[in-house]
Amino acid sequence: MLHAVSLGLVLFGLWLMLSGYFVGLLLGLGVASVAVIVWVAHRMDVIDHEGHPIHLTVRAFLYWPWLIREIVMANIHVARVILSREMPINPSVFKTRSTQKTELGQVVYANSITLTPGTVSIEVDKDIITVHALTRETADDLRSGEMDRRVTSMEAHPDSHDPLVQTTKGPVQ
């Protein structure tokens, strides 16, 4: 229920920001379409702490600045590799273990890997992620496990210490 209300609020905020008109008719149409979408999402059974992770909000805002800094550094590194005359690349494929407890955390981790240039997650099998790395530096950077640790500390395991998720169906796995 909390998730449905939150989803409705987010969608209505999106409607307001995208339309920019504050006329009665358009606001009414917005409320109607938001209601329809929340109903359809409820019928599809996708409104839970996985499809709409409000319990991550605060920690996600703590994680993103670090991720953005990491993305910028990786961008500069890969750009230098591409622009240098002899292109010192050492492509490698290796497997790394993710320590996240939930599937949502694994998705966040795999997407963070792909989002930083220089590493692409090719395949996710249970908790083993196959990664393609462009250079040795990016591969070592990932193997140091800093990103894994940060994602793990960001995702809260639903049944541990999160008051919001107690209302939902319990742990994922």
Binding site: N75, I82, M87, I89, L115, P117, T119, V120, H132, L134
Partner: peptide, 22 residues
């Protein structure tokens, strides 16, 4: 430039990643 210069499809994904992110 990386999309043109890099040798195989997996390396080119990193170049596309530069376009997509920064």
């Amino acid at each position: 430039l990386g999309l043109i210069r890099l040798p195989d499809v997996f390396s080119r994904m990193h170049a596309a990643g530069i376009i997509d992110t920064l």
